[in-house]
């Protein structure tokens, strides 16, 4: 092989490598740039673990609420999968709210380890049963408990006109408070859950 042919071969190899690199970059960039609506593994936050949606289902926007650094509730737009059952959509909303915000400057309302045991929608009242480990109670003061309850309520009310009342229970039991401070004995009317309310 002549010297010129060897140089040509070498160039061809570099061109080939460059093409592979370009293809890899194109593949990487062509991936969906937004993560799925339920970013965290479902079984971390939703105890029953059965599918609440099909990933082939279309997505729908929801408005979630999280405390901001000034300790007011602020809205964050997110997406859930359009499940057939309203309760499944509400379950996704709770899972996303428990999982925390994506935006910087917003706070996670519930401590790590708080999970959704189950959620029912019955005659306009949403019953949310939360699994709350003792450790979570060791990290939650009065005002954060208040904000956590309000964040969950506000997220569940927005965009769901069928929700009229909210009732939060802990570990399958009706309780007076979730963490020892804020009164959750009664179903709260949906209007009371609006961030402005």
């Amino acid at each position: 092989m002549s010297a010129r042919a060897r140089v040509l071969d070498s160039r061809l190899i570099w061109v080939f490598l460059a093409l592979i690199l370009a293809a890899a970059i194109a593949f990487f960039l062509s991936r969906p740039d937004r993560p799925g609506p339920v970013a965290r593994p479902m079984d971390e936050i939703y105890l029953p673990g059965y599918p609440l949606y099909s990933e082939s289902a279309e997505r729908m926007p929801v408005q979630l609420f999280f405390p901001d650094i000034d300790l007011d509730l602020k809205m964050e737009s997110r997406e859930i999968y359009r499940s057939d059952e309203t309760a499944d959509r509400l379950r996704q909303v709770v899972v996303l709210t428990l999982g925390g915000p994506r935006a910087e400057g917003l706070l996670r309302p519930f401590s790590e380890g708080v999970r959704l045991r189950e959620l029912y929608l019955y005659e306009g009242t949403v019953y949310v049963d939360l699994d709350i480990p003792e450790k979570a109670a060791m990290q939650t003061g009065t005002f954060m408990e208040h904000l956590a309850v309000r964040a969950l309520e506000a997220s569940l009310v927005q965009g769901f006109p069928e929700v009229e009342r909210l009732r939060i229970v802990r570990n399958g039991q009706e309780v007076e408070t979730l963490f020892g401070h804020i009164d959750v004995r009664y179903p709260r009317p949906a209007f009371a859950a609006s961030p402005a309310g």
Binding site: F143, H146, T177, H181, V184
Partner: peptide, 10 residues
């Protein structure tokens, strides 16, 4: 951290 009216169970 202010003075706030909250639904306090205690």
């Amino acid at each position: 951290l202010g003075v706030h009216a909250l639904p306090l169970y205690p």
